[in-house]
Amino acid sequence: MSESFTAKQVSEHNTVDNGLYIIIDSGVYALKDFVDEHPGGAKILKRVGGKDASKQFWKYHNESVLKKYGPKLKVGDVKEEAKL
């Protein structure tokens, strides 16, 4: 299942109850079922829910983490929004 999301749609998933989506390098990841498994704790994921967390992610992780968990957590990509 791979969908296209706007940044606004991702921002609506900012809590565990709403699905807890984050953006990493234009990929959209659903973390609702991963929150309790996250080695860094649930608090940090909840803080970045609904936002682009690329900067925070790459500060603490390397590419192998995204390769390991990305396939099961990725739900789509952020689509380019028309600029008027």
Rank of each mutant, 00 (worst) to 15 (best):
S26R: 15
K46W: 02
A53S: 06
P71I: 10
G49A: 11
V48G: 04
S11M: 08
G19R: 01
T6F: 03
G50S: 05
Y29Q: 04
Y21T: 07
G41L: 03
F34G: 01
S4M: 12
E37I: 07
D77F: 06
K32T: 07
S26T: 15
N14Q: 10
I23A: 01
G50F: 00
S64C: 07
S64P: 06
V78R: 01
Y60R: 14
A30D: 12
D52G: 05
K67E: 15
K67L: 11
I22A: 12
G49N: 02
R47S: 11
S4R: 13
A42G: 12
T15C: 09
P71W: 04
A7F: 09
K55C: 03
V48F: 14
L45F: 00
E37M: 09
S26G: 10
V35F: 05
D77P: 00
S54Y: 03
I23E: 01
G76K: 08
V10N: 00
H13W: 00
F5E: 08
G70L: 06
A42K: 13
T6K: 08
H61L: 11
G41D: 05
V75I: 14
G76M: 07
G27K: 08
H61K: 12
E3I: 08
E37L: 10
K43H: 12
T6R: 01
K83R: 09
E80N: 15
D77I: 13
F5R: 01
G70E: 07
S4H: 09
E37S: 14
V10W: 02
A7I: 14
N14Y: 09
D36G: 13
K46C: 13
A82T: 15
K74H: 09
K67H: 11
G19V: 04
E63V: 11
H61Q: 08
D25R: 06
T6E: 02
Y60I: 13
L73E: 04
Q9D: 10
G70Y: 05
S54N: 06
E80L: 11
L45V: 07
